[in-house]
Nucleic acid binder design. Structure first.
Lengths: 192, 192
DNA sequence: GGCTGGGTGTTCGAAAAGCAACAGTTTACC
DNA sequence: GGTAAACTGTTGCTTTTCGAACACCCAGCC
């Protein structure tokens, strides 16, 4: 099996070095030699783990995308139900380990690897299907409202990733107000 | 020669883990398995580098002792000359890299490995020879005054290690006052 | 007493990582 | 346009590290 500590450690080191370099000089400027240098890793070892720097980025983006994918539905439901406190809280709990990496990867936008775009896309689909399930006839275009909802959520996620654990009540209220405004477009007015 | 990155990295990891564990549970409670566990190192690898945990401690203490030994005379002279600002400054500059380790090792007092005792001993010898070189007949026992001087310096070093870079003027003045009092015991009163 | 569990220190073959050299490609500059 | 420098992947061989087993010791416990 893959229980060899060495593999885990070198991949850990490579990825940490990569994130560091993303901050320092940006993806385009990074060379494989750079990564190996700051990770204290041999170049031949790098190629034993990744095809090239694009593959490295891909794998990292894929990993965090998958992580997010596991929870999208839950988070989406929390948003719909107005459990903003719970949403922010569980978001931060999940990310406690990964916040740093996600924060950095959010700044990278490559055609084939864009974590923020992936998150966005997943949420957008959730909104689309949610809206279409609504019994009411709605006047505004589905995709417009879906985009609105997605943006509210992405903004919240971005904020959470940037700020980590902070007192949340003010945030919750602000998000909640906007959330209601969006939902009003697709559901009958009701008491919350 | 021995420029294999792996050796450097594992020793780095082992020593970092060891320092961590010293803080967490203290030297006596540490097992080799502990060190390997937190360093993500195989036990057989540990024994390729060190005989046992005592050897590990020894080597670390020896290293920082040697580092200090290189500079003792200079530092001592700075003290005698009342260049307290310069003393604290160069002390911190030297230790920038090692302050953390030294701070922790200062808390470990094993019969055969005691960094603080080593520092103390080196300074004490400097004071002894310095006092004996003085032309004046002195009334107080040499070792008493030597111990006094050593203590002033050790206290300063301890403070520097704990606090790192801080605004220093108040410290300088305090130390300078005491320093003069000690020197007055062995030299004729003079204008500074 | 005997037994168990956790610690030590050693060994060995297998796996991973290192290093150095390679040809091929891009980049930068005169 | 040409050349030097830097970067890329790849390879063969060496060194280090790993994991798992071993016997041993010692402390606590039934």
């Amino acid at each position: 099996m893959t229980t060899d500590v060495r593999k885990i450690k070198t991949e850990r080191d490579i990825q940490a070095a990569f994130l560091q370099l993303l901050v320092d000089k940006g993806f385009r400027q990074i060379t494989v030699a750079d990564v190996c240098g700051t990770a204290l890793i041999s170049r031949s070892t790098f190629y034993a783990h990744y095809l090239d720097k694009y593959d490295l980025l891909d794998q990292m983006v894929a990993r965090y995308s998958a992580l997010f994918a596991q929870r999208v539905s839950v988070r989406f439901q929390q948003m719909i139900d107005g459990e903003i406190d719970a949403l922010v809280h569980s978001l931060l709990a999940d990310m406690a380990e990964n916040r740093h990496a996600i924060q950095i990867l959010f700044t990278v936008h490559e055609p084939e690897a864009d974590l923020k775009a992936n998150f966005d896309q997943m949420l957008f689909k959730e909104w689309q299907t949610f809206i279409k399930e609504q019994p009411l006839e709605i006047k505004a275009p589905v995709d417009l409202i879906a985009a609105m909802g997605t943006n509210v959520q992405m903004t919240l996620i971005d904020w959470a990733v940037q700020h980590g654990e902070v007192s949340i009540t003010a945030v919750s209220e602000a998000v909640d107000t906007i959330r209601k405004a969006v939902l009003l477009q697709i559901t009958p007015a009701k008491k919350d």
